[in-house]
């Protein structure tokens, strides 16, 4: 009887409802952003309020105009900060307005909003601080090219060697942060190609990371930011960053 009353009370009076912020970093996503926002509208999960926050990172196309028309709240960065800075501004927003969870989702439509409940469920059940959406746990959906998978494998191994954390898809930009992770990343978040670096940093800071299989689509429009020579640069930059973070923890721990 009491239990029933508590349940009724909670569902009707918004107590214990968790606030979730969905951060969508956008750089020239004019072709993809409106369908994505429309897809996000019907999103719902038990006892959860969603706020959708696209972050316009000085796009040179009509992204800003589309956001003004289609989105109630969004961030418009005055300088181009790159994906890391864009995501961090969302995280700072989440920290300031007391969100319980922040979910990062790419603006190019590769990450279907229907997978958001999967991430939330995992976070609620396992109590992890960061939950990654991984393409490579089940071999379903968009899998990227062989070359890229190899690169991701190398980075996964590097992360396992430095932190002992087994990761299937360290480059996935589909991830959930809880309050603890939000507080940590409001302080520091890597600038360029942040995804693998964030995992190492969080793990060494003692955060719990888990991974769930999600379905990803091929991009609907626009081009990947990493191709050709820049993929080599990506590998070098990310490996170096991981090595430096590991080093900094080796020196400060003792």
């Amino acid at each position: 009887m009491l239990k029933k009353f508590v349940f009724w009370f909670q569902t009707n009076y918004n107590l214990n409802r968790s606030k979730v912020l969905i951060i969508i970093p956008c750089y020239n996503e004019g072709q993809n952003i409106v369908p994505l926002l429309n897809e996000l509208k019907p999103l719902s999960f038990e006892n959860t309020d969603f706020t959708i926050l696209p972050v316009n990172d000085q796009s040179t196309d009509n992204t800003l105009a589309l956001l003004k028309k289609n989105s109630t709240n969004f961030l418009n960065l005055p300088n181009n900060l790159g994906i890391g800075g864009a995501v961090q501004s969302g995280i700072k927003y989440a920290e300031r307005y007391g969100f319980d969870y922040a979910i990062q989702m790419d603006g190019d439509g590769q990450h279907p909003p229907s997978e958001v409940p999967l991430l939330l469920k995992e976070a609620l059940h396992s109590g992890c601080d960061i939950c990654l959406g991984s393409r490579y746990m089940k071999w379903e959906g968009f899998q990227s090219t062989a070359m890229r998978r190899l690169g991701i494998r190398v980075l996964n191994t590097l992360i396992r060697l430095t932190t002992g954390q087994k990761i299937y898809d360290c480059t996935s930009g589909y991830r959930l942060f809880n309050r603890r992770a939000i507080n940590l990343f409001a302080e520091y978040y890597p600038d360029k190609y942040p995804e693998p670096e964030v995992i190492v940093y969080a793990k060494l800071k003692g955060l719990k990371i888990s991974e769930v299989p999600v379905f990803m689509r091929d991009r609907e429009g626009g081009e990947s930011s990493i191709s050709g020579l820049s993929s080599l640069y990506y590998m070098i930059k990310v490996s170096l960053a991981i090595a430096f973070i590991k080093l900094s923890f080796v020196f400060t721990k003792k």
Binding site: L75, N76, L81, G85, S89, Y93
Partner: peptide, 16 residues
């Protein structure tokens, strides 16, 4: 500059 830009974006959102 990064911190300032983020701050400006968040404050602008608040003003709106």
């Amino acid at each position: 500059i990064k911190n300032l830009s983020q701050e400006i974006a968040i404050l602008n959102e608040k003003i709106d």
